[in-house]
Design a protein around this nucleic acid. Structure first.
Lengths: 157, 157
DNA sequence: TTGATTCGTTAGTTGAGCTAACGTTCGTGT
DNA sequence: ACACGAACGTTAGCTCAACTAACGAATCAA
């Protein structure tokens, strides 16, 4: 039986019962699978998850400072610098000093950025479909709801 | 609104709709919360998740070579070395050369190791309860089942 | 006007996951 | 009998994400 490399949670008898009870292990392994699926799908177009997150925030909420983007994306201010550099290099955002507050930059999505966002979104729609393929619509909604409740619960502790 | 540090998935209007649709984002953030919860609970007794996994395998399946442990735990052979060093330092396992195959070590759990396993398991039982607190037994089973199906699906691609 | 706070940035840390290479040992085929 | 490939434990290193610390510049509050 060769199993290495796979992130399969349950190998039947080969998996100790104690491990099968750990929700954090199941969630972690599944999360890793999902994350890898997304990264592999984005790689061919040279995009990263952070690009999607930042462009989505800018498109929906309008121009914002880097600190505001960080707050809304849970990307650290320190890491956001490199992400914005990449997005600016692609012409997908513009980084300009804020005339009203010289500490701030104003980040604005460009038309190219909106096109890029649509491109990435299309890829991720496919990823979601791949991931959720075994579940019917009702089950997908259940999974979102259950995980959402756990997440909200753990966030307020 | 101060939100930093939290891994809350949904901030209402502040969260772009596009992000709320990403199952991998929700799963990833929730997984990170769970993982942190577990690590914080294990820290006071100086234990790591890998300790639990290895001890559980040894307790359930009996003495094994390092390669066999790696196969059953998805811990890489290279990383397993340090984990076993720590477990040996604590007296929880014994690492001895295999007389039948001089390439191998035979790893055996000790009585102390079984006690340690019980200690860690008790902590993780509490972690599971904390994580799953907002869900009733039926919902917990559903979450396991849904994630398990997604995991199995993604594992065979 | 002094002092605390915010902002963008650089640098560095930690941990998990993963690859490469090496010497040793074993199994197989010839 | 012996060469060759594979498996073993180990060391080293890589990547990526999450996170912390510190800094100069700018702003805000006392």
């Amino acid at each position: 039986m060769e199993t290495s490399g796979e992130l399969r949670f349950d190998y039947g008898e080969a998996t100790p019962e104690r491990l099968k009870r750990q929700i954090s292990r199941l969630t972690g392994m599944t999360s890793a699978q999902m994350s890898r699926t997304a990264s592999e799908a984005l790689a061919p177009i040279g995009a990263h998850k952070a690009h999607f997150v930042v462009l989505a925030v800018l498109d929906e909420a309008g121009p914002a400072s880097q600190a505001a983007i960080a707050d809304r994306t849970r990307i650290y201010r320190s890491d956001l610098v490199a992400v914005l550099n990449e997005l600016a290099d692609g012409g997908w955002i513009v980084r300009a000093p804020d005339p009203d507050d010289k500490r701030r930059n104003v980040i604005t999505i460009t038309d190219g950025g909106r096109a890029r966002l649509a491109e990435i979104e299309a890829v991720l729609d496919g990823v979601n479909e791949t991931i959720l393929a075994p579940l019917d619509p009702g089950e997908r909604a259940q999974l979102f709801a259950l995980l959402g409740r756990v997440n909200a619960h753990l966030a307020q502790r």
